[in-house]
């Protein structure tokens, strides 16, 4: 744009004689294709070949399970902080010393925007971002993950837990 605010109009130059011939351009294209064919491949053969993200990756949030129970105390802070209102927690009383646990913990994966706020706010390090990124559903109901899908043993989340300790 010019300083006086008017658009500067440029005209494409006319094609040269050889370009107009067309046949030379075709050969140029074939040459490019052929050179690529003999170069090493860099396309990932998904889904046969899957990507393993680094610890800093924010996949779907999961609940950390330790010694067979969730660490979560159902404080509801993650539900409160979640900008997308994806989380629903219903607390109840447990015999364990932690007093409360979530009878119901649901994340609506259609609402989740993978911001990681839930992980950040959690006072118990009970919800963390996993490496899972494959999320497809046939219905809205299917996208609501309950405790059965959310609970993951702490051993499987080692990477992320270590990452959090180190960089937070």
């Amino acid at each position: 744009m010019k300083s006086n605010g008017q658009l500067k109009i440029t005209h494409k130059k006319d094609l040269s004689f050889f370009e107009k011939l067309y046949i030379t351009e075709i050969f140029k294209g074939i040459k490019l294709t052929l050179t690529q064919v003999f170069r090493p491949k860099f396309t990932r053969q998904y889904p046969e070949e899957r990507w393993n993200p680094p610890a800093s990756f924010r996949g779907r949030p999961v609940l950390v399970e330790q010694d067979g129970v969730e660490r979560c105390v159902a404080c509801g802070l993650c539900a409160r902080v979640c900008p997308a209102l994806a989380i629903e927690v219903q607390a109840s009383e447990t015999e364990y010393w932690k007093e409360r646990y979530p009878v119901k913990f649901e994340i609506n994966m259609l609402r989740c925007i993978f911001c990681g706020f839930c992980e950040e706010v959690c006072p118990e390090e009970a919800i963390v971002m996993s490496k899972e990124y494959e999320l497809t559903f046939y219905s809205q109901e299917e996208a609501i993950f309950g405790k059965d899908k959310l609970l993951v043993p702490a051993e499987k989340l080692k990477d992320r837990l270590e990452f959090l300790r180190k960089y937070r």
Partner: peptide, 8 residues
């Protein structure tokens, strides 16, 4: 106790 306290 705030996370497990009803008064919070």
């Amino acid at each position: 106790d705030c996370p497990i306290c009803d008064e919070a």
